[in-house]
Design a protein around this nucleic acid. Structure first.
Lengths: 335, 335
DNA sequence: TTGTATGCGTTATCAT
DNA sequence: ATGATAACGCATACAA
């Protein structure tokens, strides 16, 4: 495939490879004129220092990895935007991995990343209830790890999260103040740390308002739209809740569809609030009251933490946990 | 950082590095028992073949790059999902780059990718009106290129697009049949190939219906929500169109906001149709009539084309252009 | 089946 | 300011 290397270039110029190499590095001593000549010839011959050779030499890949459950999701795509911005600023490249909430995949991605491909990893996790020892070997390899949004509490690492407990408490209170008596809590996976914190906020708000807790109203949903439909149709019909707190965006959406299907009016028959990063929540019918996380900013912060630790001397004992604030934005679905 | 290499492992086992190496390659002759021993010890010592060394050896990065204008966008994130699926199936990693519609960035990403980091590139472009010669040197490096959705007509490469002209023609006809007389066409960048095809469909549909073409009603918008607001407020107030064809999703959304702001009723005062991959178009107020591209499938196809060409022997002269069909889904915004 | 030796392309060290 | 050389970690051709 006729690739040009530093030797070809040196030969073409009648110089040594070391001199040519110097032209591409910032610091080294080199005659400006020689450098100019080299750069010109390089352009001519379409030469660029080989990434793999360079990185083998100095053991830096200038690459970070991002592992998320989902890409086609407003929260994660906005967060990745933030990560991307910081990475670009630092001249780093981004590898993207999507787990689809499959823990096996998460493990296999992490294992594959032990080979030096990436200097650091930013991850939102999918296996709260699992064994996390597969993450421990990263440290030995000098690979830095930062969690965001969905984290493992038992793994020491920097973390960027939101005040899930508090905003869930407030969201539930909001439904109660709007007049709801039977509040359903919709969750994808009860065991995820996110799910737990959010549920605790819900539970405590009920208790504070002396609303009896009904276990039946904790609804375990899925990642499949069709299945959620089926579940919610049954729940809305049989258990007749008058308020829904969706712990993730897609469950709020599913609730809308189900209400539409069953002819239930929002907010008259059913009030809905949900975690969501949907930019067009105001345009829904009716507009959706949301708990909105600062997704983009979380990406910025997570990446910033990672690069800080990448720049600092090797060991990292002092892990930071950044807690950003979600906002409850009241709209017509609860009014 | 105490990294283990093949030598350490070989030493620990009393074997040669070549034998150890063989344990990690699929094909080579090696005693199954020896292999087992090696793998066990490798696990013990947390050894994995160094990615950069391997790839320097055999000149394959097992990595592809994806360059898109935007990540937090339903169309692109769904397309990337498709790409991701195929890449995973092939054991490849994905580098992601976001141009933000900045042509300079596109060029600089491409230039950086000449160094062997990726074996192939899947791109949706941002600089139709620019000089594209910076792409020509990829071929000499053996780096394969596939375009999707937004393509450069003057660059020979495989392409995955949708029937933009036809669906725009039909979308415009749909507005006309719904009774619109003054149809605005909203576009971000007139010069993009996508924009051109879509506009031509609009123009021809007007002509076929003997509706006079009013240059004023071709509205050049921006990527900024605020600016679009300003533009649309002015247009809707002064030019009083009764129908809007949004060539990209965000302009349909902006139109909704502007109508809301101006107190215009959709569809009574203004009918709206737009290209969109929004999953919740049915939930908008009113539900949005869309031209929906098969985003996920486009990603699948683009990646498949790329891997086909990666697997085939070096030269690639026979470029394919795949045209997938968009669907017009009629909802209340035009009824 | 295993070991030895060489080269992938680059860059830092040392010498000139 | 420039050149020769060794080493980064691995995988293959070849030898045993």
């Amino acid at each position: 495939m006729g690739n040009v290397n530093i030797k070809d270039l040196a030969h073409a110029l009648g110089l040594s490879t070391s001199t040519v190499s110097r032209a591409f590095r910032g610091n080294s001593d080199i005659n400006p004129k020689t450098k100019e000549r080299i750069l010109a010839q390089a352009k001519e011959m379409n030469y660029l220092p080989n990434h793999y050779a360079s990185n083998l030499r100095d053991q830096r890949s200038h690459t970070i990895a991002v592992i998320v459950p989902e890409l086609a999701n407003n929260f994660f795509s906005q967060a990745i935007n933030g990560i991307e911005k910081i990475a670009q600023k630092n001249g780093y490249h981004i590898l993207i991995y999507r787990t689809g909430d499959d823990f096996e995949k998460e493990v296999s991605f992490i294992n594959a990343l032990h080979n030096g491909r990436a200097e650091g990893i930013i991850m939102s996790v999918s296996g709260e209830s699992q064994n996390h020892s597969y993450l421990k070997t990263l440290k030995a390899k000098g690979i830095k790890l930062v969690f965001f949004d969905r984290v493992y509490d038992d793994i020491p690492a920097s973390k960027v999260i939101t005040n899930d407990y508090e905003s869930s408490f407030l969201a539930t209170k909001h439904l109660i103040e709007a007049g709801c008596k039977r509040l359903a809590y919709l969750v994808i996976n009860k065991k995820l740390s996110i799910g737990k914190m959010r549920m605790q906020g819900y539970l405590d708000a009920l208790k504070e308002s002396s609303i009896p807790f009904d276990e039946e109203l904790i609804i375990n949903c899925s990642n499949e739209a069709e299945e959620n439909h089926k579940i919610l149709r049954k729940v809305f019909t049989n258990l007749k809740p008058d308020g829904v707190f969706a712990s993730v965006e897609r469950l709020a959406i599913a609730s809308y569809y189900t209400c539409q299907h069953l002819g239930l009016s929002i907010p008259d028959d059913m009030k809905i609030i949900g975690f969501s990063s949907l930019e067009i929540a105001p345009l829904l019918n009716p507009s959706l009251t949301t708990v909105t996380q600062p997704a983009y900013e979380m990406g910025i912060k997570a990446a910033t933490l990672l690069f800080d630790s990448l720049k600092s001397p090797e060991p990292a004992h002092d892990f930071e946990t950044l807690v950003l604030e979600s906002k409850i934005i009241q709209r017509k679905s609860t009014s």
